[in-house]
Design a binder for these strands. Structure first.
Lengths: 349, 349
DNA sequence: GTGAAAGCGCTAACAG
DNA sequence: CTGTTAGCGCTTTCAC
């Protein structure tokens, strides 16, 4: 018989050391009732002494559940996602789940690859917060075997589960705010065409424009990043008939637009007002003071996990769970002026 | 015999469907050589048809390796960490590894809890990028059983593996830059006392001060966040004998300091120059233009993973792997002035 | 209360 | 080239 030291101890090692059977150790570990106090004490002592950790791998194999969920984000370096990731992790941890996060870069190829890995990994569910055109792929890959909840973007499918913000409403609030400030020529720097949330925001913008009898010809399709915003805004701002207000599809894009304005020498909001979407931490900084729409990221992430957990329960809900959170307008320096007329409906926190 | 549909197929199911043994399927899956072309074709067809994914849980159980590494960060909402996380993930994925990321909030308690979970999860290694006073705990918990590489902060232990930036040098460069610009009264907003990287930066600052015959009495202990920076800077800037230059322990803190300056009505850099550490994306934005020290986060994350992989190889290296990356000073508007004397050594990318 | 035995899905010798 | 046989570390009946 070989005595192997320093290897991480197994339940069998503990059983031997404690002079009991494997089943007994298992019962103690799982806080099962039918164990006498003295036995339990002996076992616990052995566990503590040997530094035993039950293998969740083995546990997962026998139970069929890995206590792990997957989180798909577009790009963790976009400040929106870390906030989401944190709330997802916190809520997952609260329920004993681990999170494997992956960046899809909004690429279908990448998503396919990642899904395959996640499935192989035996994850129990997926929170999909990325916005690429991968919905069918995702649903197909999972083949109804793995609970899935979309967040951040609302899926096409009417039977999918999701927790999203009302993007259209948010954008409408933003546009209305601008119109009430007296702006008549507004530009909207949209995200990529494939992003459903971006399209919803665009729709909100357009509806206000048309309701107000204004042109919505100043609409650009771009990325979700700073550079995209800067380039589009630069074109608009150095060209003829420039907009007096620009709304970005998200805060990052709007930050880029602000850069462009400053580089050109325009003042915000005096020469051009700016507003974004997401209400990232920086937006509220005195340095920036960006008017934005909060999607209540923390709540969104938390709810997404809660919904996923419901989905994983037995029996699974037979109706899809779909939640739409109300966004909140946050007015700041980038649009404020002395003539501002605050909408009472948007003054709430 | 019950026919269960819709369950995710196992290797046995595939074997049955393909009319071969389990081992054969296993060989095909693992791209093993000894399989005839026709057999392989049949098996692959079955795999494809059934949508079979090998269970990495089972694989992990038998092989003892989960192909998963843990990443400990302080707080993913600090922009430094997403960049690190992304490079870690990318490099890990390149080698077939998944990453489980956890936020420690620099709490020893939390770290303890997380480690226990990660170990139970059967991770093959850990990249520790958090900065709390948990070094002993971490090393004890792992009991030499799990490869570990520290990054971001340099550990006390001389036998630990790490990939870090030369924080002291970086801070020195920053301070020298300020001194050469003519500043004689400098303040350093440090991070918490428990953070080793923060202490190294402080040391660098102090050494330049003393070399230049200047006082380094203006040093504060604070958090790593914006609010910390703002509060400290505010005190200094409204008080008597205010500093003409402030260096923050990281960019977030410095952003807070900048907020304070603006709120008070001071101009940057005319009234007070500012510089930070990390060179987060925003630092280079035209909106901010913050002088900062780049730790080359991408390379750091990548190297950390590479080192970890080396550590996981058999045989394990008998010498600790320790790497110190050279930081780079990035000079921007927050310190620039017409009188600026550029250090040639810092002009490189 | 406690132990023995079967098996989760897979890999790794070892036979043929 | 292919199949058979042990387990990996655990949970879970089922006995005692």
């Amino acid at each position: 018989v070989m005595a192997r030291q320093s290897k991480t101890p197994t339940i069998a090692d503990v059983a031997t050391a404690a002079g009991v059977s494997i089943s007994t150790v298992s019962r103690v570990v799982r806080d099962h009732t039918d164990v006498s106090a003295p036995t339990r004490a002996v076992v616990l002592a052995a566990i503590d002494r040997m530094g035993y950790h039950p293998s969740s791998i083995a546990r997962a194999l026998v139970s069929g559940r890995s206590q792990t969920i997957g989180l798909l984000v577009s790009d963790i370096t976009n400040p929106f996602y870390p906030q989401l990731a944190k709330s997802v992790e916190r809520e997952a941890a609260r329920h004993g789940y681990r999170v494997i996060m992956s960046n899809t870069d909004d690429s279908v190829e990448e998503t396919k690859e990642l899904l395959s890995r996640l499935i192989a990994h035996g994850i129990d569910g997926i929170v999909h917060a990325s916005v690429g055109v991968d919905e069918e792929l995702v649903r197909d890959s999972l083949e109804e075997r793995i609970p899935l909840v979309f967040t951040n973007r609302r899926p096409q499918s009417t039977t999918a589960n999701f927790v999203v913000a009302d993007n259209e409403l948010g954008a409408r609030r933003l546009a209305q705010h601008m119109v009430q400030l007296g702006h008549r020529r507004l530009g909207f720097i949209g995200g990529p065409a494939f992003a459903a949330n971006a399209q919803e925001r665009l729709r909100g913008f357009r509806s206000v424009m048309s309701d107000s009898g204004l042109d919505s010809d100043l609409v650009a399709e771009a990325g979700f990043d700073i550079e995209s915003g800067r380039q589009v805004a630069r074109q608009w701002l150095i060209g003829p008939n420039r907009p007096s207000a620009i709304i970005g599809v998200n805060d990052l894009v709007t930050l880029g637009a602000m850069e462009a304005a400053l580089e050109i020498g325009l003042r915000i909001p005096a020469d051009v007002a700016m507003a974004g979407f997401d209400d990232i931490q920086l937006a509220s900084s005195t340095l920036i003071g960006l008017t934005s729409v909060s999607q209540h990221i923390d709540r969104m992430g938390q709810r997404a996990v809660q919904v996923l957990l419901e989905l994983m329960e037995e029996p699974a809900p037979d109706e899809p769970i779909q939640e739409i959170l109300l966004p909140t307008l946050r007015i700041r320096r980038s649009t404020e002026s002395t003539e501002v007329v605050r909408l009472t409906e948007t003054s709430g926190g």
